Computed example of a mutant assay.
Amino acid sequence: MKHNNITNDPIVSEKKTSAGLEDSGKETKMVVLQSIGYPFLCNLVENPKIEIFDNELFELYAREQWVGYKVKEGSFLFDQKLLPDFAFKVIKAHPDDSRITKNTSILLMEVEEVREIKKIESNLKITDVIGQERAKTKCKIITRYLQEPESFQEWAPNNVLFHGTPGTGKTMLAKSLSNELQVPLFLVKATSLIGEHVGDGARQIHELFEAAVACSPSVIFIDEIDAIGLDRRYQSLRGDVSEVVNALLTEMDGINPNLGVVTIGATNNPQLLDYALRSRFEEEIEFVLPDKNERRQILEMYVNSMPLPVDQDLGKLAHLSRGMSGRDIKDRLLKVALHKAISEDKDVVTMEDFHYALKHYKKETNEPKGMFA
């Protein structure tokens, strides 16, 4: 039986209203789809594999037939043109339970593609990051944005630069933010973004951001970003990675709607970054070496989990570890001293073991001779 009730047609309904949003009250900014196939035909028809060679063309094609449709995460859209009744599952919609308009960005992405981009899970909390109070305070804007990205619009903290001495908690803070807010963290080393063939690097950048958008709100953490974003004066030292940097700049500029995604770059040497890249960061957050009280807190945190007890006043160790980062205290003071004690069949870690660790640390870092006096 043929139905002529056109008021139920979402496209016609959208045309009949001034903005097409009266029914839902919300406009879909971005929708991510996964191709499903023909769910009602079971094994009678082989599901074709959808390969998109031109994302902009697919977006135009999709919008033309689905403008006015209400989308909700977990719901389905059905093709009515080239592949009638072919199903697409909505795996992400910004905002959820909203209506597609001519301004909606539509992305087709297979779940496998998202899984290929490694998401980091952590049980770290903000309180596990000792010190760095100024950095934590500045990160409140990131927290607020990830909790309610829709309310920020053009005021979003899209790109933030963490910089400072190695081992001071840059990665730890990113992990703790992700864990406490329960949002995915995509942590990558900048050097891993350089592909073997022309175009590989740029593709990896775009796939990284597509995966982050599909799981948004989310955080992208690019460690050692200076490895690809060196000032032009030093570019000959690292080879040509201009395609990677250009792709990264495109994503950071917001040409693609990366709603609910915060990109954090981390470097020990911000002064080496190319100006074009550094200028994209709206906020720079410095991480500093811990003071004596913070070093004592770090020592207390790690000593409690050591397999041997420590026979030494932690206040004295906090004084002797002046100039060390949190990572140095764990890996180059406590761990070295612990290993020495175990190798000598001791039941406790003594001051002799710590002096041994400090001596080797001083030798490796060329600290002034009187530092550990």
Rank of each mutant, 00 (worst) to 15 (best):
D128P: 09
R232M: 05
N8Y: 12
N256H: 11
N293Q: 15
P149N: 07
L273F: 05
D331W: 10
W155R: 14
S192K: 09
L44K: 14
N4I: 14
L77R: 03
Y356W: 07
P95I: 04
A341L: 07
S178L: 03
T191L: 12
T168M: 11
Q312F: 14
N43R: 08
R203N: 06
D226R: 09
Y361S: 02
Y61L: 00
F287K: 03
I11M: 04
G25M: 05
L320H: 10
S218T: 06
Y69A: 15
N293E: 15
S236G: 12
I329C: 07
V303F: 05
N55C: 00
V336A: 08
Y69D: 15
L249P: 00
P95A: 07
E148S: 14
Y61D: 00
Y38S: 10
L358D: 03
K340Y: 12
A135K: 12
A174E: 05
E294L: 14
E148C: 11
C42H: 11
K292R: 14
N55T: 00
G370Y: 10
N158V: 13
D331Q: 13
A227W: 08
R63E: 01
D128T: 04
Y38V: 05
K81Y: 11
E243V: 11
L358V: 10
G323I: 01
Q297E: 15
A156Y: 08
L124C: 10
Y145W: 02
L338K: 09
T171P: 03
E282V: 15
E64V: 10
T104V: 02
